[in-house]
Amino acid sequence: METTNEIIIVDLEATCWENDRIPIGQKVDIIEIGICKLDLTSHSISHKQSIYVIPERSEINNFCTKLTGITPQLVEEKGIYFEEACEKIMDEYNPEFLTWAGYGNFDREQIFEQCDWLGIEIPFSGEYLDVMYEFKRHFRLHKSIGLKRALDHLKMNFDGNHHSGADDAYNTAKILHKILEA
């Protein structure tokens, strides 16, 4: 396997419902893949983007739009199907050679579940880093804390909008960089 000094950071936004009450006949669908690359040599964060995804098993409701800022119209105009999004990631990030990371395990599990449902290959390597867990371990905390609280702990500002996949991925990259340089 090729060695590299880059890590892909991923943060998903998905269809969601108030009190996690998923309506009968609907399933959680990825509606945004926020992604960027952390270069461990230059310490830079690059290739930041939002890939909007058309939900195939559910609809974007008002609660979800309020939380994420993602509207059905936005996804209709800019969205691509999940399988196309995976192909785009493979073309632009060469993820099969890179470790990938996210804040917690939800994103990893959701990608696995959606790939399994579609019968497609997972677009990432088998090397996944849970930044939430690594943060907890690094600072010897008794329990995990959320993304914003982790940034507060590091006395770092949150850049962008919370629950924007690209912004959350970028902020996760900042946290990971800080942990790895310590």
Rank of each mutant, 00 (worst) to 15 (best):
T99S: 15
D20K: 13
F158D: 04
C86T: 08
G119H: 09
L141Y: 06
M132F: 01
L176F: 10
H177P: 00
L151Q: 07
A14M: 15
R149T: 05
P55S: 06
K66E: 15
Q26M: 11
D39E: 05
E6K: 14
T68W: 10
H177R: 15
Q26D: 00
D159P: 00
P72M: 08
L154N: 05
M90E: 15
L180W: 11
S125K: 03
L180R: 13
W100Q: 08
L98Q: 12
R57M: 07
T15L: 02
E92N: 15
I45P: 01
K88V: 05
G126S: 09
V75Q: 11
I179T: 06
L118K: 11
H177E: 14
I89E: 12
Y128K: 11
N94G: 12
W17R: 06
M90D: 10
K78P: 00
S46I: 06
L129C: 11
K148C: 04
E2K: 13
I89P: 08
I60C: 03
F139R: 08
H43K: 15
D116H: 14
K136L: 06
L129P: 00
L147V: 02
I179M: 15
I22Q: 13
E59F: 05
L40R: 10
R108L: 12
F97Q: 12
N171A: 07
A85V: 04
L151D: 06
D29Y: 04
E134P: 00
N5Q: 13
T41I: 11
Q114R: 10
E13W: 01
E121I: 05
I8T: 01
D11M: 08
D168A: 07
F97L: 10
Q26H: 06
D168V: 03
V28L: 10
Y170G: 03
T99Y: 12
N105A: 10
S58L: 02
F112K: 14
E92L: 15
D107W: 05
